[in-house]
Design a protein around this nucleic acid. Structure first.
Lengths: 333, 333
DNA sequence: TAACTTACTGTAAACGTTTACAGTAGGAAG
DNA sequence: CTTCCTACTGTAAACGTTTACAGTAAGTTA
């Protein structure tokens, strides 16, 4: 059995078969009203020829690709998977397709990505970046399609922005200090990244507010993942002097739980652990991870909505919103 | 500061600026040799006009979109994230872009997806499905672009296929029985899915080989996720009579670990647990999960390679390959 | 009746590329 | 000198849509 090689039917073919003009076919397909009499003829021709409109023709003529590009720094991190899911939730209800951009951990990768968007393969752009740079800001200025930024990367004003308001670490710290006192360790990710920088700042300020110099309470992992977390913790001297650990994301928290379990240090009885992001991971770990919910799925949904709104109506006012983080208490603290 | 609204430069503009024909510009861009003298003129015009080729024009004329569509049944499942990562690894080295299809858990969603591919928005298709159906098989036959199937869904012969060879459960069982004896529980996902069906079959056969009727050793979760796993285990009478549990994927294994930890049943001392997929999750759980590695990232990479090979040379022989699963021993068994 | 309005329809021109084809210039071979 | 070859170039025609515009038929109003 060989596959049929015959070429696909075009709108011309449909028009001929239905004995109407190609314009009428196009109008019918795009939901405009046509003479009642010809409607069934077109429908019949479409199905008998198995016609499907060609995306490229459409994209070229109408300069709309029906594609949204989502940039994801690191697909291994569950927080980005959750955001992706949120974006999908919304796009699936529309006829937009989701393009996943190559990973963009570095400034250069980000620049290449933003640059490539000028090739008109997407109608909108949802931007997530771990890094910040004047060049990124500059590249963004030239971007020819609407964009939404999730996170704290700085770009120009004419962009919708979705942030998490800054009190997340404060929230965690209040909870821990109230319950377990001031001996808190902060396991951060790299401060060369935006979240690393911001979360450290949040921690130091929150400690300051309690009259404590937080600088000696911070250990920095080389990356936001489990291995880096384990490596960083291994360098902490006398870990049992701490009563609790705040981790800059759930993967680092997973590392902390593993590390403590290896040392047979009970969580939360000896040391309490709290994560940030509240990804799916949190409820899977044992003990289940108390974590600061960053509403990632919701942020993804919101980003998709913002893009769609702007594509529908380019004059929509630019929105800069902040989501309030929320502590979700489970077993680890 | 308002964004520039001027329209993008086209190849015509570049040709005019460089004082050559548009054909030469096109040829230069596509890597064909042009007169040495005009090369710098074109390069200069391109950069001064900031020209980027328009994807839609290209796609329409050459009928190549430079896009690969990947279908993912459920983006929440880490195994699909890992496969996606593998696909990305390969595509990132090329100028193909990755399209993530909407989730396709049901037969209808699959059919709609396969149907939509006739709209020519992708050059190749990597197909993953939890479900099987004659209609899917039939729809696949009409597909006009090359496809790779990952998994055991049945389609026609003219498709590259990547499976995991069937001995996975046998592998797990041998390991467990050798170590802990025959009191094994199999925590399966829904048998309405392909993996659910196959893994159950594998389990029953492997038990049969040992002269045991496995049917009473199986409990079926309603879905391949943690909540369903917990619910299913809650219904098992007298769980402590089992010495080990094989779980049909890592999420169900995570559920088992949680369940046992809640009951203060020590793993692996009282009951050993083994997962399937060996996703990132496995090394994060405590105790770290022993799991059957399905080489998901590799399968993703392979799928991408197969598609690219076929796009390069459509006469490539169709490949049907089986990956050998491998047991990765950690703490839980 | 004519004049106007309403509600469509068809023709043809885009959109920005790639590429078949014919053409040309320069050098080598005879 | 002519002929042939090589290596490139430019013209123009696609690819499959959408849409401005002009046209038309039927209905309404005067």
């Amino acid at each position: 059995m060989t596959r049929s090689t015959k070429t696909r039917a075009t709108m011309h073919d449909v028009a001929r078969e239905a004995n109407v003009s190609i314009a009428s076919v196009s109008r019918f397909i795009n939901g405009q009203t046509v003479r009642e009499e010809i409607e069934p003829r077109i429908t019949k021709a479409i199905s008998s020829l198995n016609f499907k409109p060609n995306s490229a023709g459409r994209a070229l003529r109408a300069s709309k690709t029906q594609q949204i590009c989502l940039s994801v720094p690191d697909i291994s991190n569950p927080v980005y998977q959750t955001i992706t899911k949120g974006v999908q939730n919304i796009l699936n209800e529309t006829d937009y397709r989701l393009m996943l951009a190559p990973r963009n951990m570095s400034v250069e990768e980000n620049l290449a990505l933003i640059d490539s968007l000028d090739s008109n393969y997407a109608d909108g752009f949802i931007f997530l970046s771990l890094v910040d740079d004047p060049r990124i800001r500059k590249a963004f200025l030239k971007l020819s399609i609407p964009a939404v930024v999730i996170g704290n990367v700085e770009v120009h004003e004419e962009v919708d922005t979705i942030k998490v308001s800054s009190g997340a670490v404060e929230l965690a710290l209040t909870f821990l200090v109230d319950k377990y006192g001031g001996d808190v360790l902060f396991l951060n990710g790299p401060t060369s990244t935006i979240p690393g920088r911001n979360r450290e700042k949040g921690f130091l300020e929150a400690m300051q507010n309690r009259g404590i110099d937080g600088t000696k309470h911070v250990v920095e992992a080389e990356s936001f993942n489990v291995d880096a977390g384990l490596a960083a913790l291994a360098k902490v001297k006398n870990i049992s002097k701490y009563r609790s650990i705040i981790c800059a994301n759930d993967l680092l928290a997973a590392a902390a739980l593993r590390f403590l379990s290896t040392l047979k240090i009970e969580v939360p009885n000896k040391i309490a652990v709290i994560g940030i992001d509240n990804t799916d991971l949190a409820s899977v770990l044992s003990p289940a991870l108390t974590s600061i919910d960053y509403k990632s799925e919701y942020r993804g949904e919101l980003a998709a909505k913002f893009i769609l709104d702007r594509l529908n109506d380019p004059t929509t006012a630019y929105r800069k919103i902040s989501i309030a983080p929320e502590l979700v208490e489970r077993e680890s603290a």
